[in-house]
Amino acid sequence: MSHPRMPGSRTGRPVRPNYLAGLGSLLWLGIVGLPLAVLLTTTLRTQSDYATNGPLTLPKRLTLTNYTDALSQGFAQDFVNTCVVTVSVVALVLLLVPPLAYTIVRSRRRSVRTVFRVFLLGLAVPAQAVIVPMFYLISKAGLYDDLTGVVLPTAAFSLPICTLILTGAMRDITPELYEAMAVDGASPWRVFRQLVLPLSRGGLATIVVFASLQAWNGFLFPLVLTQSDSTKVVTLGLYSFQTEHGVNAPGLLSAVVLSMLPVLGVYLFARRALVQGLMGVGGK
């Protein structure tokens, strides 16, 4: 099932196409693709057209009013808020993770290994578990209903996975290169700037994509740590749109499409960084 080209070429038998697997893959394509297609066509039709003809027919007349409506109903503000949160989270992650990963890879102190273990353990802690104390701490700090209060825990909870990814990338730098720089008498800071950072660009790209995806799609922390329209993020906007105007499916689904456009852009331009990172999560 896995390598149909190869056995045939080695044993001289002609390669049989795997019809069964092909059929299964098409079936899954339907399960994944059909809802996505309906999502798109629904946003391009009027509300009355959707109500009378249902989701499975093609739109009578194409319209973009659903999108403009969604944007004028405050979704644009949500977008700006989410951008602020995402950029801040990525900035924090880029500031904190590279020095940490560099230390984990290069230091031989026992304490650093303990630190690494703590971060690995952090992978298993679900964000759900801490929403009550987080609400308590953020309120105490006077950051309730403030985007800063969303940024801080979101960044903290993306540290473990980003650290894991970046240490993996930094381990691939050969010891000889460090040695060469050490012979030159380079300080840890120069090694970091001139060797480690340039050679782990791939890993850095992956953690940027990861952190921004987590921040952009984050729902739980904004849900419990904000309440005003002025601090609403995109996911919360979708949720409140759904509870308030749930019957307006074309409008609601337009908001869904709008919410995923930036992520889709990242997917198209940084597909490698994203897919490689996710594949690496499985380990070997």
Partner: peptide, 8 residues
């Protein structure tokens, strides 16, 4: 030269 604990 290796980075010290302060980096982490």
């Amino acid at each position: 030269t290796r980075p010290g604990l302060v980096w982490a």
